[in-house]
């Protein structure tokens, strides 16, 4: 499995950037000719992860959110979304559906959505250092080297 294309971008943790982030990732992977539903799954997962950085990673201040997207020659998309925020004390608990520490009407479904819309989700976090979420999804319809 080789990486055939890669995107790196970073931006301030303002909620207006949620749509920017998912639109940018979506534009980058369009070359793979994803189905509408694959594209929608990926946009939704990115939106959840970026919202987590904004709401939980940097709760009372603005910080930088880093996104790295890799496309492999096996049509796999690997998306890493990272913050240098406060971190998650208990990742296992955070991954439970409906668990939320926020009182701002969050459904507590962020990780559940990422896990069900992507093939694989990995969360690494350290208190005071930050959190990174790595998500993978393989597209089935086309092959990168065809285009």
């Amino acid at each position: 499995m080789n990486v055939v294309n890669e995107l790196n971008f970073s931006f301030l943790s303002k909620s207006t950037n949620e749509s920017f982030a998912r639109a940018t990732v979506s534009a980058f992977i369009l070359c793979l000719d994803p189905t509408i539903s694959e594209l929608s799954d990926i946009k939704t997962a990115v939106s959840e992860a970026v919202t987590n950085c904004i709401v939980h990673g940097y709760p009372d201040y603005l910080g930088i959110i880093y996104i790295n997207v890799k496309i492999t020659d096996t049509n796999k998309i690997i998306i890493k979304i990272r913050d240098k925020g406060i971190g998650i004390p208990d990742v296992k608990q955070a991954l439970e559906p409906l668990f939320t520490t926020s009182n701002d009407e969050r459904a507590g479904l962020g990780f559940a959505v990422m896990q069900s819309f992507m093939d694989n989700v990995k969360v690494r976090s350290k208190e005071g250092v930050g959190t990174s979420v790595t998500m993978e999804k393989t597209l089935y319809r086309t092959s990168y080297d065809k285009r």
Binding site: E48, T51, A107
Partner: peptide, 13 residues
């Protein structure tokens, strides 16, 4: 045209 889990929070609220 698009909704993430914030839309679910909106409905539940």
């Amino acid at each position: 045209s698009f909704m993430d889990s914030s839309g679910i929070g909106l409905i539940m609220g």
